[in-house]
């Protein structure tokens, strides 16, 4: 008896939730954003930008993403649930754009405009893409690294993921720029730490052990970069560290001189531009297909400048 009551209760609660969602959709334009994550500070900043745009344009925005950047299946489920709610437009940051194509085709058929954000989708379905050019950003990191180590010596990469678009682009952007421009710089190791702070720390310590002449390490996202900084501090070895994104710990490491500098994207801008483009597309207004939200290199010297401070987050 109890179980039946519980099931009934759950069902009615679910029905209630569903109906609320529906009524919201009728009142305001509803735009779900399916992101690559939500736990990291970066995504929280994207969400902040999206919320800002939502308030400005008077639309309803939801923001969700899987626990980590390998959960392609989870993200597909989220996208399909978002589509089922018949939104006015959809924002989507694909973990694996190929895997999402059938759903995107569904969206196209249902005339729901799709705005890609953070990284591109290999398809012409998205009406626009609001993203950082990760390859170019990583190339900038490589350029700064080369300058700091005097254009020669060994460097290593601690990358957050081996399969995701951002992981691949940042790795390749860095590696290709070095290969094309600085023949005297050798890349001696590329390791993957899943963006896990502790794992990236251990990796860094081992790298410093295995390659005593290592001059520089690039950490490809917030967790990786903090891990690299931690590992270098624990080992007590001097090494040039270039990070990516921001966050309180990374900013502190840069102020302390432990980290030479980092690439920052404009996460708030990504969120804002995505919602803005989605609203325009839903209304049938013309939009630019590629919205470059930009990236910057920051270090001790410019971390407090207004231009940089505006795109950094804690």
């Amino acid at each position: 008896m109890i179980t039946r009551r519980m099931i009934l209760g759950t069902l009615s609660a679910a029905a209630l939730l569903a109906s609320t969602g529906f009524s919201l959709a009728q009142d305001k334009m509803y735009i779900p954003l399916v992101s690559k994550g939500f736990q990291h500070q970066f995504w929280q900043a994207v969400k902040a930008g999206a919320d800002k745009a939502a308030a400005e344009f008077g639309v309803e925005v939801t923001f969700e993403g899987p626990d980590n950047e390998t959960m392609v299946d989870r993200q597909i489920d989220m996208l399909s649930a978002a589509l089922a709610k018949k939104p006015a437009a959809i924002g989507f940051a694909a973990l694996d754009s190929q895997a999402a194509i059938p759903l995107l085709k569904q969206a196209e058929a249902a005339k729901i405009p799709v705005i890609a954000f953070d990284s591109g989708v290999d398809s012409d379905i998205p009406a626009a893409t609001a993203a950082t050019d990760n390859k170019a950003a990583a190339a900038l990191a490589a350029e700064k690294m080369a300058a700091l180590i005097g254009d020669e010596g060994e460097v290593a990469l601690v990358v957050h993921d081996q399969t995701s678009r951002t992981g691949v682009d940042r790795r390749d952007g860095f590696v290709e720029w070095i290969a094309a421009n600085k023949p005297k710089i050798q890349i001696v190791a590329i390791e993957y730490g899943g963006g896990d702070h502790l794992k990236s720390t251990e990796i860094t310590k081992t790298l410093l052990q295995a390659h005593p002449n290592l001059k520089g390490i690039f950490g490809s996202n917030e967790g990786s970069a903090i891990g690299v900084a931690n590992g270098a501090r624990e080992s007590g070895k001097k090494v040039v560290i270039i990070g990516y994104d921001s966050g309180a710990a990374q900013k502190q490491a840069i102020r302390d001189g432990l980290m030479a500098g980092a690439i920052t994207q404009n996460p708030v801008g990504i969120g804002y531009e995505t919602v803005k483009a989605a609203v325009m597309a839903a209304k049938g207004e013309p939009i630019v297909p590629t919205i470059d939200t930009g990236f910057y290199f920051y270090d001790k010297s410019n971390i407090d400048s207004p231009e940089i401070a505006a795109v950094l987050y804690d």
Partner: peptide, 15 residues
């Protein structure tokens, strides 16, 4: 131990 190591409690870690 882990938070002392990372000088922070990282809520997304652990799994």
């Amino acid at each position: 131990l882990i938070s002392s190591r990372l000088n922070s409690a990282q809520p997304a870690l652990g799994l």
